[in-house]
Amino acid sequence: MDAFGPGKTDEELWLRAREGDGQAFATVFDRHSDAVFTHCLRRGASWADAQDQTSMVFLETWRKAGTLRFVEGSARPWLLLVATNVARNDARSRRRYAQAIARLPPAESEPDIADEAVRSAESREATARLAEAISSLRRTEQDVVALCHLGDLSYADAAEVLGIPVGTVRSRLSRARKRLLQILGPGQVEGSGPDDSEWDSVAASGGGQP
């Protein structure tokens, strides 16, 4: 699937893409499109909307090709950050890329392979509840929550892609956790790490209800 092999970093491929190498861009797409798609779903998008948002993430990334920031050669942190912004500004992004999206086949409204976690109404509800709660946070807090918890990035990687110190990532996450505790209740946000500012689990499945 990876035409250039694992030896080429995204950053190297990106340089080739900017010279007009479509295969290089396609390889970056292959590496990260599922992660971007999943990120959009975790942000509360429907199955169909998450497909459109994935398109918009890559189109937006290409449009602002010169601003892309790599973390140890990887484009994934940046793509997830763009995905967070696209999800936040869905309507505006759709207007901007309406013509391109129209060229694509209609987004499927349901998973083509049934997945229990996706099909479960309880699970969907929990995802939507968490996404809504995250949307109520300050923008800066949304970014760190989306990157570190929904995107599984390390604090260091999130800090680098956001251009802020690691300590700021921690403090924003700490504030965000307190806010989410207020919104969702203690059964949905659990801190079990040695540092209370870290989460080890967000029991958003509904099963964590008291």
Binding site: G22, Q23, F25, A26, F29, D30, S33, D34, A35, F37, T38, L41, R42, Q51, T54, S55, F58, L59, W62, A100, R103, L104, P105, A107, E108, P111, D112, I113, D115, A117, V118, S120, E122, S123, R124, A126, T127, C148, H149, L150, D152, Y155, L173, E198, W199, D200, S201, V202, A203, A204, S205, G206, G207, G208
Partner: peptide, 26 residues
């Protein structure tokens, strides 16, 4: 940090949509 028990495991972009998007981007 990791979200254990998060209800949404990684999903795959539907194949037809993926192929069309990949081609368009290329």
């Amino acid at each position: 940090t990791a979200i254990t028990g998060f209800p949404m495991p990684e999903q795959q972009l539907p194949a037809q949509y993926r192929a069309a998007l990949r081609s368009m981007l290329s």
